[in-house]
Amino acid sequence: MNPFQQSKFYLVEHLHLARDALHIYVALIVLFGSCILFGWRVHQWKPWLLVLLAALVGEVLDIRGMPGPFESAIGRENVKDILNTMAVPTMLLIAARYTNLFTRPQATTEAAQDSRDEAQVPAAPLGSERDVL
């Protein structure tokens, strides 16, 4: 067993996670970490592609750690792991690109202007209580 697989088993055992959950957490760490580190946005392809690259590299390391020839080790579990890793980042990419789910509501110019002014008090007739300084 290679050090990569040993570290995966260590995390699964000590964090009490399922292997599939570990894939999802790593995908989210890579996605949001790359956005924070490189200033990317979730709606861009770059963080999604970095997650895909990390998933592919992880599966290659898993396959290389398996006994037997490299080509015969590729199976359904590896494909499932890649799909599982990419599911949440793909949903976030689609939601960020094609919905208003992650956009801030923009204030109208009039409302934005009013918010910067001092509080407005409606005018009172002359001689009333409000007219006294």
Rank of each mutant, 00 (worst) to 15 (best):
L37Q: 07
C35R: 04
V57T: 12
I36T: 11
L83I: 07
L56Q: 08
M86F: 06
L56P: 11
A73F: 08
K80T: 10
V60P: 03
K46N: 13
V42A: 08
E71Q: 14
L61Q: 09
D62I: 04
M86N: 04
N78I: 08
G65T: 00
G33S: 00
L83G: 15
W40Y: 14
M66I: 09
E71R: 15
F70V: 08
G68N: 06
L49P: 05
R41K: 15
I74G: 09
P69W: 14
E77R: 13
I82E: 05
P67L: 08
W45D: 09
I82P: 10
I36L: 15
V79R: 13
L52Y: 02
F38Q: 02
K46E: 14
P67I: 14
P69R: 15
G33I: 02
H43P: 07
A55L: 04
K80S: 13
L49F: 05
I36F: 11
L50P: 08
V60F: 09
W40H: 10
C35P: 02
P69V: 14
E71S: 15
I74H: 11
G65L: 00
G58W: 06
N78H: 15
G39L: 01
R64I: 07
A73M: 11
G33L: 00
W40A: 11
I82M: 05
L56K: 10
N78R: 10
W45A: 12
L53P: 04
E71F: 15
F38C: 05
T85K: 10
W48P: 01
A54F: 10
V51L: 00
D81P: 00
V57S: 05
L56D: 09
E59Q: 03
H43M: 09
I36G: 09
S34A: 01
